[in-house]
Every structure is written in C-alpha cells, then in structure tokens.
Amino acid sequence: MAKEFKIVHESEIDGTPQQVFDAATLGNSGWLWPMEVEPKLGGVGPYGSTVTVWEPPHRFANHLEGEGGFFNTLEYDISELPGGKSWLRYVHSGVFFEDWDNQYDGAAKHTAFYQHTLGQYVKYFAGKQAAFADIQGPAASSSPEAFEAVKAALGIHDSGAGGHVSLTIAGVGTVDAVVDYLDKNFVGLRTEDAMYRFFGRNAFGAVVGMTVHLFAPGADGEAAGTAWGAWLNGIYS
C-alpha cells in the first residue's frame, strides 16, 4: 500500500547561498551523482522531473509524478548567515509503496549523509565538477556485518569523525584522507582533491556501495571506479 513520507534536514553550511544553490543545481557530481537541471521555472530536472521553484540563490524545488499515486519532491530553502555561511532547509517528500519503515529509515539516514557531503563540497570544492564513479559491492556485501569489513579495510573504528586514514589502492596509489563522517552505516573520506563516500546499504537490504568524486584536473573517474571496485570486491572474496 502506498504511504507518503516527508524527511526534513536542516544544516549550517560554510558557504554563501549562491554556492549552496549552485551545488544543488549545477555541481551534483561533486557530492551526489551527475544530474542536470534546466535552469528555469518549468525546466526539466533529474529523471524527467519538473523544476517547480527557481529563485536563485535562495529556493529551488523539483517534482516528479508517476503511476499509482507516486510522486517525489525535493526542496531547497537557503538563507544567508553572517560570515559567508548559509542555513539550508532541505525537504524530501514522496511515496513508498512497501516496507515503509525500512525505506524511511534508510532514506532519512542517507539524507543526513548526503547533506553533510553537500556541506563538505561547498566548503572545500565549491564550483568544481567531479570525475565520478559509482561502485556496488558483490552479493556477499549484503550480509548484516558486511560494512564492518569496509571499516576494517579502511583502518578506521567507530570513534567518530576527525581522524585520518592512509591506505594504498592498486591503480590509484596512496590515499591520505580525513575521516569527515563516520557512523554505523556510512563513512566519508576527504583528501585535498577528492571525496570518497561509503554506504552500508546492507543495513537496508541492499549491498555495500561507494562513490568516488575526483576534483583534480584530468582525473579519470572510470579508471578510479575500476580500481576501487576491485578493492571493494576483494574485501569479500
């Protein structure tokens, strides 16, 4: 049975409203995944959605409708704060058709991680596009304890964000990174020219995944995806 949901997330971001607005509408590859938004009211948004609010640099929304009562709406409300900072109120509303509690829990926790990553992008990489890779683990990474294996391979523990890791990835080289996000289900790593996001989607009935966001000029997202994919698969072999 279809049931509506609404997820609200608010956060302070170290960047101007224009930088936040641009990140939400132009810089998606840097913190989420590559998506295009036609920059006007009524324009075409991701997945065939429609831009329903276009008021740069403070408000943006897009809306998608489908069969059986399906809809999905994303809203960004950005306010200016002193010191070149912003306050973002993000609202995601829509419909889940089954396993509502688990889907809502997963979506809410993903939202917190994505919005944190948006803040990291604006603070450290604002205005830059990224070479991007989306990597999914093997079926074995869907087991209940699977994400702990990723943390162990990264050399981190549940002591909170703020630490550092250093590891060598075949085909990539040495990655020296700050742990900018760490909880039971997600890990965020940031270097001088990249962000790496790790998703413990095994907790929500899927496989472990990760995304790569490379900001160095000439970065090869496909090659990085292949290298990190081999690393991720190797954890479970």
Rank of each mutant, 00 (worst) to 15 (best):
K3S: 00
F5Y: 10
K6Y: 03
H9S: 08
G15Y: 11
P17T: 15
Q18F: 10
Q18D: 09
F21N: 02
A23T: 09
L26T: 08
G27D: 12
S29L: 14
W33Y: 14
P34Q: 03
E36D: 08
V44C: 07
P46Q: 04
P56G: 04
P56Y: 11
H58E: 03
F60Q: 01
L64Y: 03
G66P: 01
G68T: 07
G68I: 15
Y76L: 07
Y76T: 01
I78Y: 02
I78Q: 00
L81C: 02
G84C: 06
D99G: 00
D99P: 00
Y104C: 00
H110N: 04
Q115M: 15
H116Y: 08
T117C: 08
F125W: 09
A126Q: 14
Q129V: 12
I135F: 09
Q136N: 10
A140C: 08
E145K: 12
F147G: 02
A149P: 01
V150P: 01
K151P: 01
A152R: 12
L154A: 04
S159M: 15
G160V: 14
G163K: 06
H164K: 15
V165Y: 05
L167T: 05
I169K: 02
G171K: 13
V172H: 06
A177L: 14
V178T: 15
N185F: 07
N185W: 10
V187A: 05
V187M: 05
E192F: 11
M195W: 07
Y196A: 05
F198W: 10
N202D: 03
F204C: 02
G205Q: 03
A206N: 08
A206C: 06
V207C: 05
V208F: 12
V208E: 02
T211R: 06
L214E: 05
F215S: 01
F215N: 01
G221K: 09
E222I: 15
W228V: 13
W231T: 06
Y236K: 08
